[in-house]
Write a protein that binds this DNA or RNA. Structure first.
Lengths: 140, 140
DNA sequence: TTTATTTGTTACACTTACTGCAACAATTAA
DNA sequence: TTAATTGTTGCAGTAAGTGTAACAAATAAA
């Protein structure tokens, strides 16, 4: 599952939880609603739980619910919760090049450039809250 | 080979060609210099040739050379030449969702958002010329 | 205590994609 | 005719992704 797919899946689940709040919802109910396997969804939700975005409880009356207000949850923190690698990670070839060679210098150049792009994207995502997405969707 | 690796490989090769200009250079010479298999490099260079960035010639005195001034070549056109998919393509899950459902609306939302991000990145890359990279590298 | 439900995690078979390299026809100049 | 080079295809080996099942641990209800 690609990072971008995981991100959109997460937002789908979180929107569902926002609507159901404060009632807890099971992974299988959400999974059926958004069209994904419940095991896979639980993997994502457990990461969101570890990062304090949702709350999870086992047992008969258990399930998931939002732990923060939807206006306090932004895309960047969702992304960081579900992905170890830096946002929209880009890589360069590291091996088979000599020290201080032009190829090596270019590797550093691109690492810097990609890091910059990454920061731009993260800044953009920080400005987008779950609530703003819900509002936008409802007005269409 | 990831898109970002292809991009940095391309720039390494183009820098090498800029330095050698106007002498044509064989793929195996470039490949040895930047640490990549010559077959693979030829695949990349042939795409750059199809897009008018380099010139290629078969035969004994053949090889590759730049077809445009390095100040006239920008990262975005290099990227487009080597990659069919849109720059830094991001995808969303399309199947198993109902028409006009919230998940479907969110898919459209993310397609738009990712397209926006893509435009931002492309704009940034358009401003970076091969010559500006060479200048930067030489001053380090 | 027992039962039912749910999370969190692991495992696994299956498929797909990637990788590095070799090979070779086509082209071209010597 | 020969040698060098591009452009492209193929291929074996490896890695990564996918979808699903399974099950222990936790928890509440019966």
């Amino acid at each position: 599952m690609s990072a971008s797919t995981k991100l959109s899946t997460s937002v789908k689940a979180l929107c569902y939880l926002a609507k159901a709040y404060p009632k807890p919802v099971s992974s299988s109910e959400i999974a059926a609603a958004i069209g994904i396997n419940s095991s896979k969804l639980r993997m994502i939700l457990s990461m969101l739980a570890k990062n304090g975005i949702v709350e999870s409880n086992s047992g008969t009356t258990g399930g998931f619910k939002l732990k923060k207000q939807s206006s306090e949850i932004d895309l960047q923190e969702i992304y960081c919760a579900i992905e170890d690698r830096k946002a929209f990670h880009l890589d360069v070839r590291k091996d088979s090049i000599k020290k201080n060679s032009l190829p090596e210098k270019l590797n550093f150049y691109f690492l810097d450039l990609f890091a910059e792009v990454q920061v731009d994207i993260e800044d953009k995502m920080k400005k987008i809250t779950l609530q703003s997405i819900i509002n936008k969707i409802n007005n269409n």
